[in-house]
Design a protein around this nucleic acid. Structure first.
Lengths: 164, 164
DNA sequence: ACCGTTGCGTTCGGAAAGTGAACTCAGCTA
DNA sequence: TAGCTGAGTTCACTTTCCGAACGCAACGGT
């Protein structure tokens, strides 16, 4: 697994990033959202080696993002399905997709489209203020560092508090 | 860089995922949002090796997410700043953080907090329908596959159109 | 003039992770 | 009996990552 060092142990960006920032993991999650569930289908839908696929599916199950569910084919087999924790990654995927659509658009248009089941509208992602509901960009947000607690020297050496 | 195969060339999730899913990249972007700009500061704020750091900063600049800006220290040096494309990754980071806060909360609380500069409210991320504004989960969204266009055999072998 | 320091990289040998191909195993089907 | 299939596992090989050392330019101190 990608490394998480002491300084990052409390950062809730670093923690998921260490997990999802591992090669293939994000692609596997995407594939799961697209409906892929079986080992063989994961393997053929993306050019991942079988050994790494087995390992990644294992860690995703360990992390509680996928669960192994038995099903009967000709004999008992297992498929991998998103848990609630996994389904909750949807905004991450959508944010990624929105960014990709804007900044890395493929020439031939996207390979699949997403629409609201009820009204047919497109899918959008917003960052908003929980209080006043205003839409926010990075510039509208102030960062406040909590007590470092593991920095022996004075704070502000590694990551200068905000400013831009 | 993480591999993007033919089948993924048009997927706007896979493209950014290949870039950001590379080890360290997401952490570097987070660090940039926290205000880090200089090589030395990136290096000391996270336990990344100098060689990989140089390489990653290079690819982020190539991709247009960071830009090298000259500044005068004692002689001309460069710092790395987010471009508009980079700043636009904010929703991705926030989605990641929201998920991390919910599913991998560190015992001692988050190491920094984010508040709306104007009203002090917290930061939230939503997936909504662009048309009716309703909040969406994965289950509310229908996936429609476009024509594969580069599959010589009959469609539906690589990425089975939903179902199962 | 010389020495040490700082900022920013580059180079290098060894360790870890990823790769494709072959192998296993259990229960069909022909 | 032989062959096929889904889901892994094992293995030799290649790529990537790591830490440590080195390079280098412009200071500041002596």
């Amino acid at each position: 697994m990608a490394p998480v060092r002491v300084a990052d142990q409390q950062c809730t960006i670093a923690l998921p990033a260490a997990l999802l920032g591992e090669r293939w993991t994000l692609l596997l999650v995407r594939q799961a959202f697209l409906g892929t569930r079986r080992f063989e289908d994961f393997q053929s839908s993306m050019a991942i080696s079988r050994s790494v696929l087995a390992e990644r599916l294992g860690t995703l199950v360990e992390e509680g993002i996928l669960r192994r569910v038995a099903y009967k084919d000709v004999r008992t087999r297992y498929e991998y399905r998103l848990t609630e924790k996994g389904l909750d990654l949807y905004p991450v995927l959508m944010a990624l997709r929105k960014w990709g659509d804007r900044w890395m658009p493929p020439e031939q248009g996207p390979s699949f489209e997403l629409h609201h089941r009820d009204c047919g509208g497109g899918v959008d992602v917003h960052v908003t203020c929980a209080a006043c509901r205003e839409e926010l960009t990075a510039r509208d947000v102030r960062v406040t560092f909590s007590a470092p607690a593991d920095e022996p020297t004075a704070p502000g050496s590694a990551a200068p508090p905000a400013g831009r």
